[in-house]
Every structure is written in structure tokens, then in C-alpha cells.
């Protein structure tokens, strides 16, 4: 019973990471520059460095890439109180 359950969960995690790895290769070569313009000129060392994180957080990045969104502005008590920044979308 325990072995079946854990086998299932390990398989699920492996599938998630396998999809993530395929996505990450595409993202670091093409998508990163769309989501974050600074990344468009990133070195190959940089692309390799963010690859594991892209494989782990791929649903977030995939959604942003698909919707053409950029990184949001951080939320702090002062920014919330001040309202939207000048020139913000």
C-alpha cells in the first residue's frame, strides 16, 4: 500500500520535472527574453544557471510566456499605499 502510494507520488514528481525540463530548454533559449527583456542578451552561463529553476517553476513561466506578460512590480506596504507607479501599465 505504502509502496504503491509513494511510487505514484514519485512518478508524478518525475513527470512534472520531465515536462519542466523540456519546457526549460525552450524557455532559456527563447522565452526568457520575451518575459524579461534583460534576459534576451543573457550569457549561456546565465541560461544554464536558471535552467533548474525554470524546470521547477515551469507553470508560472509558461503562463507568463503564453500571455506575453512581464515581471510584476513588487508589492510593499508603501507601494500599495502610493498606488500605481508612474508609467506603469
Amino acid at each position: 500500500m505504502l509502496v504503491t502510494l509513494v511510487s505514484w507520488l514519485v512518478g508524478l514528481a518525475a513527470a512534472y520535472l520531465a515536462v519542466g525540463l523540456v519546457f526549460a530548454v525552450a524557455f532559456v533559449t527563447r522565452g526568457a527574453g520575451r518575459v524579461d527583456p534583460v534576459a534576451a542578451h543573457g550569457t549561456w552561463g546565465f541560461r544554464l544557471a536558471i535552467l533548474p529553476g525554470c524546470a521547477a517553476l515551469w507553470p508560472l513561466l509558461a503562463r507568463r510566456w503564453a500571455r506575453g506578460e512581464r515581471a510584476p512590480v513588487e508589492r510593499t506596504p508603501h507601494r500599495d499605499a502610493a498606488g500605481p507607479a508612474e508609467g506603469a501599465p
Binding site: V35, V38, A55, A71
Partner: peptide, 12 residues
């Protein structure tokens, strides 16, 4: 995996 500045900027 998220220690790079790319993540700081994109996660905020």
C-alpha cells in the same frame, strides 16, 4: 535553483 538575480526580478 532560484538564487539568480533573474528570479529576484521575475518573482519580485
Amino acid at each position: 535553483a532560484t538564487s539568480h538575480d533573474f528570479w529576484l526580478h521575475n518573482l519580485t
